[in-house]
Design a protein around this nucleic acid. Structure first.
Length: 279
DNA sequence: CCCTCTGTTGGATT
DNA sequence: CAATCCAACAGAGG
């Protein structure tokens, strides 16, 4: 599901569900969910990954969970290995009573000592879990990534340095090496807030535009951090009205100026924008 | 029922 | 660089 806010919600959920609990068992329902590096490629499936993950988590407790961009690093008390988590499009973590039959989307089933289990579910099977030695975990968490969009907010000058490319700004914002955490929705919504046309070459943004964008990103993300304290990742944007200003609103009036919202495809992904507000 | 299109991700290829 | 395809699956629409 994730962009940065959903991954942060996942982090908090996992902490809350496992804090002080011992993991008594782990069943691997889909060995392909365990990869030797965070990747959507099935060629990265880790042989014997199930054994490694089981020995990493069974009999211990959560020590800490860190996030960088859309990745999580899960550490366990007195264990030499930790787990990197990547949700891709459809990965999600939920809490269920132990006696509840597994859904067909369950890839990993963490059994706790409180009568509950934590399931790693993933329909499309692009998500994965990667065991990593704890001494390498912090590096692996952020490798190939720019600053976290929320934990290390960038100013206009930093943005200018990192956006030194002719690529369209919308496409550049999806590049995690530029800035970590934005995805297709919040990249477009941030540009709408900053009144920047998604086709603008990134290195042609004016200082005023860079400043507006740097300010818009945290403002865009922050409200979506709120989530319920239940057993499901009930994110702000699940179940109900479309909470976005422009996303999936082609043809609808812009909330600011009533001009119909447009849609185009950039780098294989939908971009929505207001042709009047964003120039 | 079938077919096509779409998709909150990221990597490889052309 | 940029566009395209790919991984594997579900849901919507024609």
């Amino acid at each position: 599901m994730p962009e940065l806010p959903e991954v942060e919600a996942c982090r908090r959920d996992l902490l809350r569900w496992t804090d002080g609990r011992t993991i008594t068992d782990l069943t691997v329902e889909d060995p392909a969910a365990i990869r030797y590096k965070l990747s959507t490629l099935t060629t990265d499936i880790l042989v014997d990954g199930g054994d490694i993950v089981r020995s990493t988590v069974i009999g211990t407790q959560t020590e800490r969970i860190d996030r960088h961009g859309k990745r999580l690093a899960w550490r366990f008390r007195d264990r030499p290995m930790g787990l990197l988590l990547f949700l891709s499009m459809t990965g999600r973590w939920v809490r269920r009573p132990q006696n509840e039959p597994l859904s067909k989307r369950v890839r990993l089933n963490f059994v706790l000592d409180d009568g509950y289990a934590v399931w790693f579910e993933d329909t499309r099977r692009f998500a994965c879990v990667t065991p990593v030695p704890v001494e390498d975990l912090a590096t692996a968490l952020a490798v190939g990534h720019g600053p976290d969009a929320l934990l290390q907010p960038v100013d206009a000058a930093t943005l200018r340095e990192r956006l030194n490319t002719k690529r369209a700004i919308k496409v550049a914002l999806l590049d995690q090496t530029v800035l970590a955490g934005l995805g297709n929705i919040h990249a477009a919504e941030s540009l709408f807030r900053a009144k920047i046309h998604p086709d603008t070459p990134a290195n042609e943004l004016t200082s005023a535009q860079l400043q507006a964008l740097a300010a818009a990103i945290p403002v865009q993300l922050a409200p979506f951090l709120e989530h319920s304290l239940g057993d499901d990742p009930t994110y702000v944007n699940l179940g109900g009205e479309n909470p976005f200003s422009i996303y999936q609103r082609k043809g609808e009036p812009c909330p600011v100026c009533s001009t119909p919202i447009e849609r185009q495809v950039q780098a294989g992904r939908s971009t929505f924008w207001c042709p009047s507000c964003q120039r």
